[in-house]
């Protein structure tokens, strides 16, 4: 089976300082990879390289998917001055069939007209995660998805990811805490 991501000997430098080197991994359908490392070890950079935002200094990366990559980063891509509803429109998930389900799980269905700026950090993170829950991708890339989430939401996230893995999707995530997901791990 052809891997969805094939990374070979990736290395990255900033201002001639090495961040990481010799990163090699393959990910086939239905597999997850947990990227571990200290602060500043280059986890985010590695994820950005896989997304195609950053070019590696050396090494090859091929991604085999013709759908968009779903990327949840540190920045939540929400407009502070718009309501939840408008933000869902901007995320292009406003008409998704499952949207009501997730909104009621997260207790947000009553406050659709509230501006994002008036929500707590965790609530904002939940809305940003709707991009993941309603995704249309084969490749899910998550950068510290659990930051700011309560236990209940973390459980929902883990369940969702396990289900997606069964559906044959590929998950690449970085996290400080260990999540209950069957995954290989890579330390950088």
């Amino acid at each position: 089976m052809q891997p969805i991501i094939r990374a070979h000997n990736l290395s990255y430098k900033i201002n001639d300082k090495k961040l990481f080197q010799g990163i090699t991994f393959d990910l086939v359908k239905g597999k997850a990879l947990h990227i571990k490392g200290e602060n500043g070890s280059g986890k985010t950079t590695l994820l950005k390289i896989v997304c195609g935002l950053t070019k590696p200094t050396k090494g090859d990366l091929t991604t085999n998917t013709n759908k968009e990559i779903c990327f949840i980063g540190h920045k939540n891509a929400l407009k502070q001055y718009l309501s939840i509803e408008d933000n869902l429109t901007l995320m292009n998930v406003g008409n998704h069939q499952d949207i009501q389900k997730y909104l009621s799980i997260f207790n947000l269905d009553k406050s659709l007209d509230v501006n994002i700026a008036n929500l707590s950090f965790g609530q904002q993170k939940k809305i940003a995660l709707l991009r993941l829950f309603l995704n249309n991708s084969d490749l899910l890339i998550l950068d510290e998805p659990c930051v700011g989430l309560d236990m209940n939401a973390q459980k929902i996230l883990v369940e969702f990811l396990n289900e997606e893995l069964l559906n044959g999707k590929v998950v690449l995530f970085s996290s400080h805490i260990s999540l209950d997901i069957v995954s290989d791990s890579l330390s950088i």
């Binding site: 540190h74 891509a77 407009k79």
Partner: peptide
Amino acid sequence: FNDGSLEQYAISQ
């Protein structure tokens, strides 16, 4: 740029 929308645009098709 600050809120990450540009990131999403750049990743999208």
